[in-house]
Design a protein around this nucleic acid. Structure first.
Length: 545
RNA sequence: GCGCGUGUAGCUCAGCUGGAUAGAGCGUCGGCUUGCGGAGCCGAAGGUCGUAGGUUCAAAUCCUGCCACGCGUACCA
């Protein structure tokens, strides 16, 4: 539809000598297929009334190819109606997405659960969103590397190891299943750290030993705990069909991070009260500690080190996107400001993108006190609900993960989401299973239909036209989602599309009707668009349910 | 205190680079058997878009004040 936009632009220049950037929008269906507010924009410059300008523009634009009618409405909108043929063409080719990101390599970091701690639904959200954004970029031609980063060192690990040791001693067994105890061990260690000075000293000692790797007992617990944590994460990711290309550990980011910070003391960083800090005040940011007064690197330094590792592994990357919860937004501004002083070109291509908190309608969760909703528990809960409703279904797995993923992805990125486990991850209405069901119906229709020669398509009736119009919007929606890095646009669109299709399906007989060929062509296009959209969201599209 | 974010129907949310009567889902109420899958479709009720101002031909959308909530604010991540 670039042609139409340019035509409007040209007409404005012709008639009024004005350079404008006209908006070409999708108005409510009753008004037409496209609309522009160019006349309203021009009113001031041309010193004429909007309707007058609109009339002049409309006359000029009447003979554009593919345009059936141009009408003026309201305060001066110009509404375009496409010919059925043009609309049909757009609908039938909607899945052919342009590839503006061809040749680009993009790094996307997301997920980032820490070993020794529970992987809760906040991590699940991050994984699902990050994966969707990755495949969204891939749909536009980019070569995406999915990355994750995990805190395998630091105080939280020391707390967990302390807790593990106490639990093991209590049980007097070496065969404890760590997977079940890691979360408990962490909250036990955390509580002792707060309450008992002796325990605090011991945990601090463990923390130092983790860095120095000089205590065989600690090393062993650390190695075992890490391994079990990652096996557990893998189990969850496997269920979600999400994979990562490279998993970075905090311990490997220490050295490059410290090196970068130490080399820039006095230039980028200052010493203050025994610590090395970045003075963010000058850029109206927070001041943050990079190396503690005990000489240990903080998260800041390690994250700086991580950027160096990514640079080394992917020297040709065009963009690097880091996705985290929005509690880290201010922190990332400081980290990226420091990076900009050290390696401006890396900072320039790096963006931080944040999503909101996942909270439960039943109350707040906190990993410190052990009040978390584990990812695995959510998956099992939804699985159980699906099982109960559809005990005979052969695609319960697809429905379960479709429900979970869509449940998260339909929200606009950025604000907090409240999860009512009973309702939010729903199986009807605005949900993943609704789309899957609509898809299965289309598949079943196409299976029953005989292959026919491509007959005359002819004029579209009302519901055919409505479906065709919706289908034709697909590339525009993907483009918007990519530009804004907002996968929820796809969810909104696919839902509206499926709704439109279901309505068409109720109204129109397809097989055996005079218009069978034309309708089947639309059903086929619909099936392809739905499959494409669900694929971007990494939601399975079973042909039978 | 300061900074960032959020506030739209009973609940969960779209809409926010200003535009035509504010949209969905859930829940509530009422319909749809013979025609391709009822996990569906059609309809009804339900809104001072937190609040008070401002800018504009036009504000849920932009600006300012206030209120409420969330997050951040030097050695956690």
């Amino acid at each position: 539809m670039q042609e139409l936009k340019h035509a409007v632009q040209a007409a404005a220049k012709n008639l009024y000598g004005a350079e404008i950037e006209p908006e070409l929008s999708r108005p409510a269906e009753q008004f037409g297929d496209y609309a522009t507010n160019a006349a309203l924009q021009l009113a001031k410059k041309a010193a004429k009334s909007p309707p007058e300008i609109a009339r002049a523009l409309a006359e000029d634009l009447q003979n554009q190819p593919g345009i059936k009618s141009v009408k003026i409405a309201g305060p001066g909108f110009i509404n375009f109606r496409l010919t059925d043929e043009a609309l049909q063409n757009a609908a039938l080719n909607a899945v052919q997405l342009p590839k503006p990101l061809n040749g680009q390599e993009i790094l996307v970091e997301f997920g980032d659960p820490n070993p020794f701690k529970e992987m809760h639904i906040g991590h699940l959200y991050s994984y699902i969103v990050g994966d969707a954004i990755s495949s969204l970029l891939e749909s536009n031609g980019a070569a995406v590397k999915r990355l994750s980063y995990h805190g395998d060192v630091g105080l939280h690990v020391a707390k967990a190891i302390y807790g593990l040791r106490s639990i093991q001693n209590q049980a007097g067994a070496e065969t404890i299943e760590l997977e079940n105890y890691l979360g408990k061990a962490y909250s036990l260690g955390n509580q002792k750290y707060e309450d008992e000075p002796a325990a605090k000293r011991e945990i601090d000692q463990i923390n130092a030993e983790i860095y120095q790797k000089n205590n065989p007992e600690i090393n062993k617990l650390h190695e075992k705990g890490s391994r079990i944590s990652f096996e557990y994460f893998d189990k969850i990711l496997d269920l979600l069909s999400i994979s990562t290309d490279r998993r970075y550990l905090e311990s490997e980011a220490i050295e490059p991070g410290l090196k970068a910070v130490k080399a820039n003391i006095g230039k980028v960083f200052q010493e203050s009260q025994g610590a090395v800090i970045y003075d963010g005040e000058k850029a109206s940011l927070h001041t943050r500690v990079f190396i503690t007064s005990k000489g240990l690197p903080t998260y800041e330094t390690k994250d700086l080190g991580l950027t160096q590792l990514k640079d080394k592994d992917f020297p040709k990357a065009d963009r690097s996107i880091i996705i985290t919860a929005n509690e880290q937004s201010d922190y990332f501004k400081v980290m990226l400001a420091a990076l900009a002083d050290i390696k401006p070109e890396t900072a320039r291509r790096t963006n931080h993108l944040s999503h909101g908190f996942v909270s439960l309608s039943t109350g707040k969760m906190s990993s410190r006190t052990g009040q978390v909703y584990p990812s695995m528990k959510l998956l099992l809960d939804v699985k159980e609900a699906v099982h109960k409703l559809y005990p005979d279904s052969k695609v319960r797995k697809e429905v379960t993960f479709g429900a979970v993923k869509f449940g998260f992805l339909k929200h606009r990125l950025g604000s907090d989401i409240v999860l009512d486990v009973k309702e939010s991850i729903s199986l009807e209405g605005q949900s993943g299973p609704y789309l899957q069901y609509a898809y299965a119906r289309a598949c079943s229709l196409l299976e029953k239909a005989q292959d026919k020669d491509q007959a005359e398509i002819g004029d579209l009736d009302e519901s055919e036209r409505s479906l065709a119009r919706k289908l034709s919007e697909y590339p525009e929606v993907i483009d918007k989602a990519v530009t804004e890095l907002m996968p929820h646009h796809i969810c909104t669109y696919l839902y509206e599309l499926a709704q439109n299709f279901n309505s068409f399906y109720e109204k129109s007989r397809i097989i055996g009707d005079q218009r069978e060929a034309a309708r089947l062509a639309l059903v086929r296009a619909y099936k392809n668009v739905l499959a494409s959209g669900l694929d971007i969201l990494n939601i399975a599209a079973p042909e039978k349910m």
